[in-house]
Nucleic acid binder design. Structure first.
Ligand SMILES: NC(=O)c1ccc[n+]([C@@H]2O[C@H](COP(=O)([O-])OP(=O)(O)OC[C@H]3O[C@@H](n4cnc5c(N)ncnc54)[C@H](O)[C@@H]3O)[C@@H](O)[C@H]2O)c1
Ligand SMILES: NC(=O)c1ccc[n+]([C@@H]2O[C@H](COP(=O)([O-])OP(=O)(O)OC[C@H]3O[C@@H](n4cnc5c(N)ncnc54)[C@H](O)[C@@H]3O)[C@@H](O)[C@H]2O)c1
Lengths: 220, 220
DNA sequence: CAGAGCTTGTGCACAAAGTCACAAGGCCGG
DNA sequence: CCGGCCTTGTGACTTTGTGCACAAGCTCTG
């Protein structure tokens, strides 16, 4: 077994979770084989791309047949590193932080909520979802108890860098940032950013630049 | 004036809102000139990339000096189509829908909340943020009153396609989907997707595949 | 008004991602 | 057990994105 298979391209990595979600759905429907064609249709991408993506994980398909759903599911979980749970610590118990904490979809997909922490004394001790908001001073302890932990920043942008530093200091090695601000972390820490207003602006761009000739009539 | 300047590459479009955010910040600090170098630093990208990105908008810089913040801001808003507000309709008054409705950052950035609608009779009439949840039957009316409108899907994945169809039928031409499901829309409708669990899984991947030799010690 | 000092704008070479097309190879019916 | 059928896996090519390096051009100083 080749431990150091080819490096998986970033673009592929970004699609793997989508395939994973679809495979889980298929498995739930007791479908045990799927072709790249079908998978592509469900994921909204090109079939050749699906095959190439899956080929980075190894040679798991059967020519003339397709992919065994359960086996591919197992291999994909392996590749994504979601064979075990990754507890999540949410920093910031505001609108967004509370929505995230209440969201069942995370636990279901292997990301149980370890804790919600907040700097505001007034919020500490209040209930959110199944947990109680804890003070920032508990951060290191929480992280230590659950390692490896993913940190989620749901605070105002102005303190995002500060919070990121605190997360790193506490031992968190992966961070998802919802604040609209650039945060920098040591190289070995994984960092991703989600900016909802930015998404809206991108939509705005494509709407403004849409070919004015086409109308809403007529489906593709 | 060349109306049909070069087509702006997707990768550039995705970065423009980030530049816009930074320019707003700079303008707020009464800084009136910025170099590509500085802008790159603030955006966390390469300076040459910044210059190339900005050059798609036109020749707005001054050699030896940099870019005039206010002028660039104006041009960028023009390019992104955010010179006027884009009202947003949120479908689904659950955890996420309520958080979005309560979020001031959208109005601030030119995306005021037009309405929140929900199919659940029990939720219709309840207050969320500054508005009252309205029934799905009001959708067409709301859209007509505010056009152009961006639709936000914050319902369970199982009904995402249904909701998208309703949005399109009501006259919405841009959709942001938070549900973990593939939705398809006519070609001329802009669609973007945000899947938070997917982001966590990508983080999980990079953590699992991180070079085990590096540790948390030592900043870049 | 000439020359030094910056910073832009872009040609170019390279890297990454996406697509096509087809040979390789497994499955099944006769 | 052979040949037709189907789907994978991948080499070759196209398209898109990135980054370097430098000429062009503006400003300011003496
Ligand atoms: N609410 C949304 O739907 C939404 C959407 C997009 C982006 N965001 C972004 O998410 C972030 C949070 O948004 P929100 O609406 O929940 O804001 P919020 O103001 O409701 O909540 C922020 C929370 O962070 C806490 N906080 C402040 N400083 C802190 C610190 N130093 N350490 C720990 N906690 C601290 C506050 O006490 C508060 O509870 C913001 O950056 C916002 O731009 C929110
Ligand atoms: N809560 C989060 O933090 C979070 C995070 C990531 C993704 N999501 C996704 O966002 C979506 C919403 O999540 P949530 O936690 O708010 O769920 P939720 O169950 O709290 O809310 C869903 C809302 O949609 C409404 N709804 C159901 N069917 C509808 C229909 N046909 N038309 C209109 N409204 C309908 C429900 O009445 C409910 O109010 C889900 O797809 C979820 O996967 C949520």
């Amino acid at each position: 077994m080749d431990v150091h298979a080819r490096r998986i391209p970033d673009a592929t990595v970004a699609r793997l979770p989508e395939y994973l979600r679809i495979l889980v759905e298929l498995a739930g429907q007791r479908i045990d084989t799927v072709s790249s064609e079908r998978l592509a249709e469900l994921a909204g991408v090109n079939a050749a791309k699906v095959r190439k993506d899956l080929s980075y994980l190894g040679t798991y398909g059967t020519r003339g047949v397709g992919y065994d759903v359960d086996y591919l599911l197992f291999q994909m979980r392996q590749a994504l590193g979601v064979t075990q749970d990754w507890p999540v610590v949410v920093v910031g118990a505001g609108n967004l932080g509370r929505a995230l904490a209440n969201y069942a979809g995370f636990s279901d997909r292997g990301f149980p909520l370890a804790a919600v922490v907040d700097a505001d004394e007034a919020k500490v001790g209040t209930a959110v979802g199944d947990v109680t908001v804890r003070p920032m001073s508990d951060l290191a302890e929480v992280v230590k108890a659950h390692q490896p932990v993913i940190g989620v920043i749901a605070t105002p942008g102005a303190v995002a860098q500060l919070v990121a530093d605190q997360l790193v200091a506490a031992g968190v090695t992966a961070i998802l940032n919802f604040a609209p601000a650039l945060v920098s972390v040591p190289q070995n820490i994984s960092l991703r950013k989600v900016d909802l207003a930015l998404e809206l602006q991108i939509l705005s761009f494509y709407q403004s630049h849409r070919d004015p000739g086409t109308t809403t009539r007529g489906w593709p």
